[in-house]
Design a protein around this nucleic acid. Structure first.
Lengths: 236, 236
DNA sequence: AAGTGGTCTAGACCACGCG
DNA sequence: GCGTGGTCTAGACCACTTT
């Protein structure tokens, strides 16, 4: 019996071609009419699929021209350090300070793990992000080893873990929960960010839902906001 | 000469009825078929209007039942103190510490004002938010007097400035930009929140875009996150 | 003028919730 | 079984961009 929705099929087809670079960033998708012919469906259905791609941040429509493929960065864009991905003037660098390694779950994760996850070991790694050669963010990440293999940092696409997930594993971020606190810098944080112990630091605990069932990414970020505040904008 | 889109008309019609309480929170809208008959349009058009209302956070659809009217709090919900609007257990209270008054713009606003706004005087007021009888957030707000009349805090709907805008003025929040910093508490902040000077505080500067042209709301929040962290979740 | 996305019609059948 | 929203067809005309 038919269960698979047609618009879902188109959606997956186009999404996969974007993720694998067959519709490159900056190019235009085939026109809606072409997609209709190609899949023998009506425009309503094609447009429903494209609407979803817009919502997920893969494309934008330009009336009279076509549907343009975007660099997908929305998920990270929601809470970004001022200047991060802001291109102009800032030099951003990421250094892996602790290679992805298998270990036990850290007790400090402020989210409760699922039973599945508790049974599994986890992958942990740590990075420091620099802006203009100054360390600004210390970031810890965890995920369940059962849900995704261990990825060497050498294999990261453009130094980015999230780009790697998208382009090599076709895994997308579907949502996130965050918890923000203002705390004094502890010793390790102060050392990594080159600041005094006790300096006010923004602590962000985050849990990312992904498109891969069972895979949840946990993060623990310490941000020195004195020079580079965190920015966040959203529109309905 | 037809310029007005039909789905826009339905959208405005339903939205206004929600805002004015003619479709009360928790109730169900007329069915899509009924709306078709009522306005002599097709379901495609009705559904397009309802899709927009979903995006704006006014309703949710429940298959087999209908479209339910929501309490609209999404805009504030994007960055909320843990427990705020979380109902259970927490007692939330807001106290106006400085009545809305006409004055010059404060230089400390970290956003640049439009020329229109600079010419106008502004309305300023200050509130302290309590959770379980403890002061947790100190909030300053500004907006241009030319864009909206002075509203007495006595006239606030349920102590809420945003509810007042929505229900009395039919103005909705369309988006926001925020800037977050972790800072040591200054004297006035420390006094208002009952903490020591120098305690790490989360400082949030925010600019709200509204549905009323020319009206932008500016906010300046100081949050004591030691007991109640800020929460934020988003889904694509 | 040709091609693109934007809006809209007038139907149809299906999946789900409820009495 | 009935009413609800979810999916889909097969068209049409309009608004905008590009050639």
């Amino acid at each position: 019996m038919k269960k698979v929705k047609k618009y879902q099929q188109i959606l997956e087809y186009v999404k996969k071609r974007i993720q694998t670079g067959k519709y490159p960033v900056g190019s235009y998708l085939p026109s809606e009419h072409d997609l209709c012919d190609q899949f023998n469906i009506t425009r309503t259905t094609v447009r429903k699929a494209l609407d979803e791609l817009i919502k997920e941040g893969f494309i934008v429509k330009e009336q009279g021209r076509g549907s343009k493929v975007l660099e997908r960065q929305k998920s990270l864009g929601l809470l970004t350090v001022k200047g991060f991905s802001g291109a102009t003037g800032y030099k951003v660098k990421t250094v892996v300070t602790k290679e992805p390694a298998i270990q036990e779950w850290d007790a400090s994760i402020p989210f409760s793990l699922t039973e599945e996850e508790k049974k599994s070991k986890c992958i942990y790694f740590q990075r420091v992000r620099y802006i203009d050669a100054k360390p600004v963010v210390l970031e810890n990440n965890w995920y369940a080893l059962d849900a995704l293999e261990q990825i060497e940092s050498k294999a990261f696409v453009k130094d980015s873990f999230f780009k790697t997930l998208s382009q090599k594993y076709l895994i997308e971020i579907m949502g996130a929960e965050q918890e923000l606190k203002s705390i004094p810098a502890a010793k390790e944080v102060a050392k990594n960010l080159g600041i005094k112990i006790g300096t006010p630091i923004l602590h962000i605990s985050v849990r990312f839902q992904t498109s891969k069932p069972g895979l949840v990414l946990y993060g623990d970020l310490y941000c020195n906001t004195t020079e580079y505040p965190i920015r966040n904008s959203y529109f309905l």
